[in-house]
């Protein structure tokens, strides 16, 4: 029996892959969004910044910023869930992952955002769940909250076109 790899080696490989996926997308940096990983589970974090405000009187996060946050969380979760098995199987070599060598990103077909309450000027969190992922299409649901996990401020469902296997 092969002895399992040291935990640090495994963690580093997974974190490097996630870093390459997220770090390669300029818009995620523009929004200041980061991802936390527990095993294969991701939590998207959008730290509060003044530029995310839409209505300075309430004050409230911009609905567009909320939509973008949810879409990023959904897209990264979907890309990550595909990448995960390739990292674990060794099919993808993490040591030279760049935007050019990463698998192509899925494309958003449609995205429906449900605004439940106004976004407060505080950090926001989101978790996405891939409800269906076929060869060509995927359906992803995403929930976002701020202070209380049980009090969502927005949720969304999106459909995505998966990259064709020969797209690179």
């Amino acid at each position: 029996m092969k002895y399992p790899e040291p935990v640090q080696v495994i963690k580093e490989r997974r974190d490097t892959a996630l870093g390459a996926l997220v770090g390669g997308i300029p818009y995620i940096g523009f929004m200041g969004i980061t991802f936390e990983r527990r095993g294969d589970e991701l939590t998207a974090i959008m730290p509060y910044r003044g530029m995310l405000v839409g209505n300075p009187v309430l004050p409230a996060l911009h609905g567009g910023a909320t939509a973008a946050f949810l879409e990023i969380a959904a897209l990264v979760e979907l890309a990550w869930s595909g990448l995960w098995s390739e990292i674990e199987s060794g099919a993808v070599d993490v040591s030279n992952l760049t935007p050019e060598t990463l698998p192509r990103l899925p494309k958003t077909i449609d995205f429906t955002v449900d605004y439940l309450r106004s976004g407060l000027p505080r950090d926001a969190y989101a978790r996405a769940r891939v409800n269906r992922s076929g060869r060509r299409y995927a359906s992803v649901h995403v929930e976002a909250w701020q202070d209380n996990r049980s009090r969502l401020f927005a949720q969304a469902t999106g459909h995505f076109l998966m990259p064709a296997p020969n797209d690179g």
């Binding site: 997308i25 567009g64 939509a67 192509r104």
Partner: peptide, 15 residues
């Protein structure tokens, strides 16, 4: 949103 194609992210279009 996609560094390979340099296409804008959908989130910016949503905003």
């Amino acid at each position: 949103g996609d560094p390979r194609t340099r296409v804008l992210h959908g989130g910016a279009i949503s905003a």
